[in-house]
């Protein structure tokens, strides 16, 4: 990779940007570079596609999970029970 600022980025950087953009944390310039990379890189295109699908799946409203506080509460009660046995 050349030292000077380039619009061409290596695949690792492209994947990193792609991961970041799943959380809306990639800057505009990073995204432009990613998209340029995607024009000529099949592997990263595939990775980006899968990554987007994964984001879509995990952001489905019907996935339920316990937040930290609820889990903590559960643990506390559970370990109290565990000690009694």
């Amino acid at each position: 990779m050349s030292k000077k600022r380039s619009i061409f980025i290596p695949c690792e950087a492209a994947n990193h940007t792609c991961d970041k953009s799943q959380y809306r944390e990639a800057s505009l310039w990073e995204q432009i570079k990613l998209n340029i990379h995607l024009i000529y890189c099949t592997a990263c295109r595939k990775y980006s596609k899968d990554n987007k699908t994964l984001t879509k799946l995990t952001s489905s409203p019907n996935i339920h999970y316990l937040n930290a506080r609820e889990k903590e509460k559960m643990k506390k009660a559970f370990f109290k029970e565990l000690r009694n046995i």
Partner: peptide, 24 residues
């Protein structure tokens, strides 16, 4: 157990009882 399975079980329950509190 709680680290490994609580989310899975919780997800299973919420879709059946429709109420987070009860599910917990």
């Amino acid at each position: 157990w709680i680290d490994l399975y609580s989310d899975y079980l919780f997800n299973y329950t919420v879709s059946r009882v429709k109420d987070r509190e009860t599910a917990q």
